[in-house]
Amino acid sequence: MNDTALLVTNLLFASVRMAAPLTFAGIGESVSQTSGVLNIGVEGMMLGGAFTCFLVTTYTNSFLLGILAGMLVGLLFGTLHALICVTAKQDQTISGLAINFFVLGLTSFFFLVLFGQASTLPDIKTLPVVPLPLLSKIPILGPAFFSHDLLTYVLYIVIILTTIFLKKTDYGIQLIAVGENPMAADTSGIPVKRLRYFASMFNGLMCGLAGSYMMIVQFGFYIENITAGRGYIALAAVTLGRRNPVAIFFVSLLIGLTEGVQFTLQSLGVPIPSQVFSMMPYLVAVIVLLFSIGRSNDPSALGVPYDRQERS
């Protein structure tokens, strides 16, 4: 009985670790999508954040500077995306794709130039674990959810704050209005462009944070293209969680759990190919998308650039 409890706790603990970057990025993307800006560039922004965070932490030995630098790079590319999609009114999917390529190229280029000659992979310290008093004493759930590092607690706070922001504040409602009907929002005096810029930049910040989390909590080292498709899984999580921060967290937990189960099964010697598990989040996303037929709650203006002078 005790062994099972320990196993469950360990699995959940690992799931939270896996889920956190997905949730950070997913929350950013859901705010962006709510305002009508689809950003496929999540992958690239996460990668850019991760690389910058790794670089700055390596050279300054400061976690805080690393995180800030990672977020700054994310912010930069989020702004670029807004510039292309909101100001220049270009196709959002292609812009995101271009950002992914651009960042993948830049990070690989600089990684090779800076660390290509090194014989050992450079690594950085990871954040220390700070168990929360009282909460971490809850059996099973306590050690799994409340015995993490500070950045994970930041995630919990971000989840709560974004939920309140989207559901309870004027700005949140305005954001939804901009995503549903930008023309009506514009007519009632809501600054459509400014809100879309804000949402896109917030997305960049969150993706940079997700990348930083991967560096200073999850991995502690960097290799080329370390995100390896996690940005796309985050997109799937946003679709599954229907742009609801809490739901995105639980979906990400589930995805993290499948990865955890995979490692456990492999260590027990159960012969299930890892590809089956890698396929899982995407398969589940597709299946849930199929179930959401007819009940889609996508913002009406998702992916559509807003032009004040154009009649709709």
């Binding site: 220049a88 292609i94 651009f102 690989s108 280029f109």
Partner: peptide
């Protein structure tokens, strides 16, 4: 020169191509 330079250039080409309409 690392081949990733090609990827940078490619992404850059598409980004300026998208922005060229506006600026």
């Amino acid at each position: 020169v690392p081949t990733s330079l090609t990827t940078v250039i490619l992404g850059m080409i598409v980004i300026v191509f998208l922005l060229r309409h506006h600026f």
